[in-house]
Design a binder for these strands. Structure first.
Lengths: 160, 160
DNA sequence: ATAAAGTCGACTGAAATGATCGGGAATTGC
DNA sequence: GCAATTCCCGATCATTTCAGTCGACTTTAT
């Protein structure tokens, strides 16, 4: 499991989505502007996120992206795996770079290590990240209710 | 904290070192041969490991590398940080890519996330890896005593 | 002196990263 | 129907990193 800025961008963008989807679909251009990520790059990432069915898209004016599942069921590992595709980890599918008994050593070592890395990332959900972030900040939080899905009639400025 | 094959190579090589250093300094060409890693590449990695004082070098014939500290005080995080240098994690030292309050969100989010990744990797030592590996394998283990430092008079074949 | 080892720096090919561009297709509001 | 908005997709590109190579050098045991 690689941990690169690519995955970071994806998680950041997904968090932005999570925080704003109550007002309906969120446009990529909005995410791009707020998070300072190139729009075209976001399009690439969200193409993958959509194919992994982490987000759903709505075309046309007023369209954008929504989370495809409840945010408590979307883990950081899901997001990173979606954009960082291979997630190979062991690097030697039984072929070269490994030989004799040494093969097993390296192989088992890394698969167990990356398994635990994965387990951790898999245990952190988008919902956790939101909650965690809101607890940490002392900024004004206009939108504070946790389960009020349709509580915002107009555009609500969420500061976080 | 990045997790690449570079760091994997380094940890694999360090583990090889840990398993063989009782017979005196371990040559890089030996590590290269056993672990199938290019010698020149290993030289680069061990240059960094030496500058981070994780290993000590002995020049001349019969020379090689030894661990600079007890293997129970060398963590996987130490090794990866030594070769994967920046370990930046937040990617925005308060400069661009972050603005207004959004800056803090992304920043805190990733620093806390990568802090926990680091904590885990930092909790796994070379000694742990050796023990863990030996427990897992059912191969013959010639050198089995855990604290017998000078127990091997001759070249001892360690199978793992 | 010679050979065995580490040390250092420059260089390289290949891949991944991060981004740009251009042209689509779907959908809404008019 | 038409235009605007938005997602969709493919090609391309500059830069960085990865992984490895090469050559020259220093230290040291024999």
């Amino acid at each position: 499991m690689r941990l690169t800025t690519k995955g970071r961008f994806a998680v950041t963008a997904m968090l932005d989505l999570a925080l704003r989807q109550e007002n309906g679909p969120v446009t990529l251009s909005g995410v791009a502007e707020r998070q300072r990520i190139s729009l075209s790059y976001l399009e690439q990432l969200f193409g993958k996120l959509r194919r992994q069915e982490l987000v759903a898209s709505v075309r046309g004016p007023g369209g954008g992206y929504c989370l495809a599942r409840d945010m408590s069921t979307i883990s950081v590992a899901d997001i990173i795996a979606a954009v960082d595709e291979p997630m190979d980890a062991t690097q030697c599918g039984g072929k070269e770079n490994c030989h004799d008994e040494h093969r097993c050593m390296t192989h088992d070592l890394w698969s167990s290590l990356s398994q635990r890395m994965f387990d951790y990332l898999n245990s952190v959900t988008l919902h956790d990240l939101m909650t965690q972030q809101r607890e940490r900040t002392s900024h004004r939080v206009v939108l504070h209710e946790r389960d009020a899905r349709h509580a915002a009639p107009d555009a609500v400025e969420v500061q976080f």
